[in-house]
Structures are given as C-alpha cells and as structure tokens.
Write a protein that binds this DNA or RNA. Structure first.
Lengths: 258, 258
DNA sequence: CAACTTCTGTGCGATACCGCACACAAGATT
DNA sequence: AATCTTGTGTGCGGTATCGCACAGAAGTTG
C-alpha cells in the first residue's frame, strides 16, 4: 500500500464554502470513501444512508428504462454532492449512480444530515442552491436530448467531465459514453473520429485526452454554456478556507461491493 | 362579469395538506390570480416575486434554445407550485412558464415565502418534497426525449395534462403540442390521427377530448407511470381540511400583460 | 356570402440515427 | 508465440423524424 496523501474535504467546493465554525462542527463526522472506477454508488430502490461530497471523483447519475436502455441525466464532481433525497425528503430516487472517474468522496451519515437540516444553517442553504443548479443541468439535458446531434452531445459530455477533473484525461470507452448519452456505441465512434481528425482529442482503448478545449467548446451545443453560467450564478466560487489540520484523523471507509 | 364561485385554496394539494394553524397563518396573505390561456407567467431572466399554487390551471415550463426551438420539461397543476427558485435560493431560472390550461392560482409574495422558509415549518418540508418529485419529472422527460417515439410522448403529454384537470377536454392545438414536445406539428398530426382512429381521443381545431384513458396509458411509454408512482410516494394524497370560510375576502389580482 | 385566418392532413426527398454484422487492432493471458 | 478479450472502425439496409410545400377544412371577420 502506498501512502498517497489523503484528499482534503476542502477540495469539495460546497464543504470549502462553509464557515469555519460549521466546518469545525461537521468535519469530525465525515468519512473518507474511495470511489473506484465504475463502481455503483446507488441503485434504484435502495435507501441512501449518506450524503457524498466528491473531492476528486466524478459520478454520473443515470435512469434505466425497462428495456435496459439508459441515459445519464447528471454529472456530479467536486462542485456538488450526491444524495439530495436525504434532505429533500424522499427515500431514494429511481436512478443509478456510477463512478465515472475514480477518486474519493467524503460522506456524512443521514442522522447528521438531518441534524444539520434542522439546524437550518449554511449547509442547508448551500445544498438547496446546489439542488437548483442540478435541476438546471437535468432540464438542459432533456432539451439537449431532443434537439442536438451526437457530435454536439459528445462535446458537451467531455466538457462536463473535464470541468470536474484537474487533468485532461478521461478514462472511458466509447461503449460507456454511449450508455451515458443513450446512443449507440457506433455513433460515439463516428463523433469521436471527427473530433480526433480535427485535433480536438486523441484517444485509444478507453483513454481520451483533450487537446483543444476551446475548440471543444466551440463544437459543443449551447447546453454546456447555459448550465455552466447558471451554476456560476447560483454557486459563485468561494475562496477555500483552511480549517482542518488533521486530515489523517478522518476515517477511511470501504464501500460494500454492489 | 359573471359571479362564478372563486376557486378555493384547498384545491391546491400542497396548500390543502397544511395543518390548520399553518393555513390560518398563510391564507390571509394569499392572492388569487386568474391565469388566462397561453399567458406567460415567467420568462427567463426576470425575477419571480411570488410562489404560485395553481388550483385549476395547468402551467408548462419550457426551455427555449438559441434557435427558437423549445421543449417543455415540466407540467405543474394543482398538485404543485411554481417558483421553486424563491425557496431554493436562486433569482430565477433559464426557463419560460406558459399557461397551458386556463384557471387560477393563489400566490404568496416573496417576503412571506422567505418568512415561512425561515420558520422551517411544514410548508418548507412540503415544498422540498414537491421539488424532489419535480426533479424526477424533469429527469424522466430527459430520458423520454432520448428513447421514445412521438406517438408515445403524445400519450404521456395528454396524461400529464389530464391528471391535472377535473374534466377530459384539453384546449391546445397540435402546433402547441409540437412546441411542448419539441417536435414538428406534422409529427403531432400523425400521432393524433392514430389515436383518433383507435378511438382513444377525438379532436377538432384545438379541442381534444380523451375518450379512453386506459388505452392512452397502455399506449404511453413507461415514463408517465414512473413519475406518477414516484410522485405518489413523495406526496401521498392527504385528506383536504376545511379551514378558511371566507374565501371571498381573498383579493384577486390581475397579472401584468407580458 | 366572401374573404381571411387558423388548424389539420398529406406528400416527398433529405438526414440522423438505429440494429446488425463483421473486420481489425491493441493489450492481456497462457 | 498463440490465444483470448476488449475496444474501435466500417458497411448496409431500415426507420423515425425533419424541412418544406401545399391543399383542404373549420371557424371568424367584414
């Protein structure tokens, strides 16, 4: 086992934006959870027991149809959280959450979330704001699914993923992207080929490198920009505070295999 | 002017579900607003000043693309409310709200909503639960747009509208439905023809009558059922209470022309 | 009644995407 | 090296939907 440095809770923008006293209250109850590539964090019908705040992982939320077809409706990274039903009032959602880029998340158990909800403090306000941004993303996905080509949607998808990473490499096959966009793998192949020929990306066997981000944005549909702009209005980036010193004291948890 | 009986606040399920003391506190601050067919209740970029609780009107929320194409992502009737951004934390949303079936709504001004939010009472809990149901509807719309035929989506649309009416007649042209579904008018014509030939609906010049609701459900995609089921879990129907006696005392407001 | 507007029906070629089948290429396993 | 698995490229016919053009039908207005 190597001793890689633990990710810090402040890598998650929502946690980072909290006032020092709120951080001091909450952080002792956080648990660090490694999120391996392609692991399932949630499956329809189950009950979520934690809210997850990703630090360096990306999670996709997808709906599965009766015939097995699927579509991703949302991408969550360190700008957000997973498990809104815990404070919105439901037990779960008819969706599935899959780790799209390996990393970690800090999680807060349900009772603590409830406690914080009742306290009616800063965390609740942030969670609700994030939820509103989330709705925008889902809605724009609906519009995009209706009106835009696979080419455009692939660009949007790559950008959504890029924004939540600190580097420019994505680990996902065209088959996987097809599942996320709800289109055929061959359709993704065609679109990816065009992008590669234009020098926007390069890829091989599940490893995609983004070479020209500006061009990618230019080739994407407006949906990416609309959501980004709206999110920035709702969740303006707040300077990270440094409060916790002893990250090492936070326990590490292993997700049960699903 | 005729003296039709005013709709009662309790016709809105969320208001009806409130405890008597909450109703007593809130209802004096409600205003009745007539919602004429096709009027615009909200347009992207504006600031919403009220939360609207429809009693007998239906409102559609749509996103407009740069090229003018549009798609409805949500239908709101007496089961819900309009203006979630007022308590979720934003100023507005990049969407447009149009009255799809004439009727009325009671509205609560922003300061009162805020007050109620801070009180952290039953109304907030209900609004959040409704918001979660709303997310499910938007997400399912995204999936539906990706995977289902115009035929199926027309059925879903008719059912969504039917559920929010007390009768079986819809006043909307095929052109209008096309705008809502984000498809061509001709596509709607084809789908509607099939339904009429099967005796499921009959229609003429903007007036649609649903003749066989069961068949409509059978012909619809699963999306309708998924959302309905999820909504029923989140917002089980609560018996209506009768508290307010003097409905006539509630002021009637006219929406500014947009 | 005539003229006009609105709504609905229909035809036709173009296009995007699908489903399927298969070939090939890059790693992984033995 | 031989084999196997996984990921990617390609071709082909089928289908849903589009964009456009136009015709007819049902109300509306003058």
């Amino acid at each position: 086992m190597s001793t890689k440095p633990k990710p810090h809770p402040q890598q998650n923008h929502l946690l980072a934006a909290l006032a020092p006293d709120v951080q001091a209250r909450l952080f002792p109850h956080l648990e660090l959870v490694p999120l391996p590539l392609r692991s399932l964090m949630y499956e329809s019908g189950r009950t979520m027991r934690h809210v997850y705040f990703p630090t360096d992982a990306i999670v996709s939320l997808q709906y599965i149809m009766e015939n097995g077809a699927s579509t991703a409706i949302l991408v969550v990274g360190n700008e957000g959280l997973l498990g809104i039903s815990l404070f919105m009032g439901g037990q779960g959602t008819p969706s599935r959450s899959i780790v799209q880029s390996a990393g970690h998340a800090y999680r807060l158990p349900r009772p603590k979330v409830k406690e914080e909800f009742n306290r009616h403090g800063q965390l609740l306000l942030l969670m609700l704001r994030y939820t509103q941004a989330l709705i925008t993303q889902v809605a724009q996905t609906a519009v995009c699914n209706r009106h835009h080509s696979i080419d455009q949607q692939l660009c949007r998808w790559l950008l959504l993923s890029m924004d939540r990473l600190s580097h420019n490499q994505l680990t996902m096959t065209q088959e996987f992207i097809g599942n996320m966009l709800g289109v055929r793998r061959e359709g993704v192949t065609q679109a990816a080929l065009k992008l590669q020929q234009q020098g926007v990306i390069s890829y091989s066997r599940g490893l995609i490198k983004v070479l020209d981000r500006d061009k990618l944005e230019a080739l994407s549909c407006e949906c990416y920009g609309v959501v980004k702009k709206e999110t920035e209005i709702l969740l303006p980036y707040l300077p990270q505070r440094q409060v916790i010193k002893d990250v090492a004291a936070i326990p590490v948890v292993t997700l049960p295999t699903l």
